[in-house]
Design a protein around this nucleic acid. Structure first.
Length: 559
RNA sequence: UGCCCGAUAGUAUAAUGGUAGUACGACAGAUUUUGGUUCUGUUUGUCUAGGUUCGAAUCCUGGUCGGGCAACCA
């Protein structure tokens, strides 16, 4: 009920409207969409939005979604990328009906080309790349006809076949559609359909030496798969005219293209070229560097598929330019992690606390809830003893107003343990605080507190003798500016030099020894963390997914 | 100076000729054994000028601003 209401409140995006109209008009009984990545890079958060759109639509309406690799350029495409893309889509939680490759359609596509040639709608051009460019005109001036434009279809047929048979070197000839060199849409000025590339293709090997261009592969592939709604980003708007022209002339299934604006996230880049540069020039450790906006990077960072899907749903789909605030992504992951992450205590920067009235050598196991948000709360046990570590910045000798933490004479609660009072501050020669001596209130034990004392602050802690060592990696935004691509000069000049901070030795409660790669944790008062793949037998490594909201830090910043 | 697309709070997105709403953010408060969570409240918007209409964010016209288009990339 509330689900339905939520749906109504949210309203439909313009693509859902089109689909509902089509369905209502009986144009289709089911819809078919496709997600068409080129296997030349890793998927990023922008692709996630497109994936959620395409797959989400056929979850909502009758129909299915295909995965189709747009592998028409053998020079840049690799099998490594095919596997990573499939992995990422599955991880996001979607299943494709059919797995297709544009390269599977090469024979069919060639046949389409022959048909066009036979009907005088395409011709083989011997012009060089430069000549074609110069004859193309400009956006404000019409182009001129190629001298090869009026060859007979017999000659064209012969040349096309010889192109296919490998008789000509790369770039020697192209097959072009015969449309209109004065067309106001530059894409309609006799677009190139096939080019010669003697290159190894990741799937077809050496079988072909001519490869179709995007415009001669995409629409036809949609048509072959009877895709009803072919969704792509706004830069393809001018291609639609050619998309429709080709489908019309070929008289094949009329798929339709609809365009939406690609989603942009601030403080990062999402162009494959730029991401590849970051990887190749070692500004990051790889495609799965937790600072990368790639799906694999977000995954390693500790983001959950649920939170990414939620984000994509919240940002919606429209046609205008956008730069989405990363704080929304962070909100989504916090919201999910708050529900599922187990609470653990880890001290990043230790300050020794001696509980002077706690018996030496005594250890008690205190239960602490894994997650207070859970319906059925479970507990793990934390060892408590005389010598503890607390966070260095949870103590101040001369605290400011509204400081709820430990200070001389003040009391705080140690989470799930006792209330302690700071009695004495121990310093070294330089005046640096090396440890604090406290006394605990025995009646204040968590769960059976009869002390009647109310304290404002609650601290996380670990027992020194029982703590385990770990490394943590703290991430910040990869760029210093909201939109690196729109800044003066090279986008790499705006990389945030402090995007990674490694703390090689933190003190973690012993239960963390049992961590596995699927676990999500909230390190109490610190943030959400997950085990990194660099973890080894003798070293635990945790990635910080996102910090907790910190209103105290905000308060301090003000003054 | 051609063709195409777009413009609603700081950000993103609804309102389909009839009360401009939601989320995030920001701000204030309540609750809290996480300065977390939760809850409450506040704040800020239809690019502009005309027109059509009883009534316009919505339809029409002009303008302004932003983006795309001259790869044998997708």
């Amino acid at each position: 009920m509330s689900e339905i209401k939520k749906e109504e409140e949210k309203g439909h995006n313009f693509i859902e409207e089109i689909i509902e109209e089509d369905l209502a008009a009986g144009k289709y009984s089911k819809i078919i969409t496709r997600f068409p990545p080129e296997p030349n890079g890793y998927l990023h958060i922008g692709h996630a939005s497109s994936i959620c759109l395409n797959f989400g639509l056929t979850l909502k309406y009758p129909g299915h979604t295909n995965l189709r690799f747009d592998d028409t350029n053998p020079v840049t495409e690799e099998t490594e990328y095919v596997e990573s893309i499939k992995d990422d889509i599955r991880w996001l939680g979607f299943e494709w009906e059919n797995e297709h490759y544009a390269s599977d359609y090469f024979p069919q596509l060639y046949d389409f080309a022959v048909q066009l040639v036979k009907r005088g709608l395409a011709y083989v051009d011997d012009s060089t790349s430069e000549a074609i460019a110069s004859m193309k005109g400009t956006p404000t001036e019409p182009g001129v006809n190629s001298p090869f434009r009026n060859r007979s279809s017999e000659e064209n047929l012969d040349l096309l076949e010889r192109m296919k048979n490998g008789e000509f070197p790369d770039g020697a000839r192209t097959l072009r559609a015969k449309i209109d060199m004065a067309h106001p849409n530059m894409l309609m000025r006799d677009p190139i359909l096939y080019r010669i590339k003697h290159a190894h293709h990741h799937r077809t090997g050496e079988a072909w030496c001519i490869y179709p261009m995007y415009d001669f592969a995409h629409g036809q592939s949609d048509s072959i798969e009877t895709v009803t709604h072919s969704l792509c980003t706004m830069e393809f708007v001018p291609h639609r005219e050619l998309y429709d022209w080709l489908i019309g002339r070929l008289e094949i299934y009329p798929s339709h293209q609809y365009e939406f604006a690609r989603r942009n996230l601030n403080y990062t880049v999402t162009s494959k070229r730029k991401l590849l540069q970051l990887v190749n020039e070692k500004h990051v450790t790889g495609w799965d560097d937790p600072r990368m906006p790639t799906i694999t990077g977000l995954r390693r960072r500790g983001y959950t598929p649920e939170s990414i899907r939620d984000f994509c749903e919240r940002i919606g789909i429209a046609k205008r330019e956008n730069l989405i605030d990363v704080s929304l992504l962070e909100f989504c992951v916090r919201e999910h992690l708050n529900k599922i992450a187990h609470r653990r205590m880890v001290v990043f920067d230790p300050l020794k606390v001696v509980v002077t009235n706690y018996p030496e050598g005594q250890v008690e196991m205190l239960p602490s809830e894994d997650n207070p948000e859970e319906e059925k709360v479970t507990y793990r046990e934390m060892p408590f003893s005389r010598e503890l570590y607390i966070e260095a910045d949870d103590f101040m000798e001369n605290p400011p107003k509204k400081y709820f933490r430990l200070a001389p004479g003040q009391m705080v609660r140690l989470k799930s343990a006792y209330i302690i009072r700071c009695d004495e501050v121990i310093k070294d020669e330089s005046g640096k605080v090396t440890e604090v001596h406290c006394s605990y209130i025995p009646e204040s034990r968590s769960g059976s507190d009869t002390s009647g004392i109310n304290v404002k602050g609650t601290l996380h802690w670990v027992s020194i003798a029982h703590a385990v060592n770990a490394e943590i990696r703290l991430y910040d935004r990869l760029f210093r500016v909201e939109d690196p691509s729109s800044e003066e000069g090279d986008f790499k000049d705006y990389i945030n030099p402090d995007s990674l901070q490694v703390v090689t030795n933190v003190y973690a409660e012993p239960s963390l020894l049992k961590s596995t790669f699927n676990d999500r944790y909230q390190f109490l008062r610190k943030g959400y963390f997950t085990l990194d793949k660099d973890t080894s037998e003798d070293r635990l490594v945790f990635n910080r997914t996102v910090t907790l909201k910190d209103t105290w830090a905000k308060e301090q910043k003000k003054s």
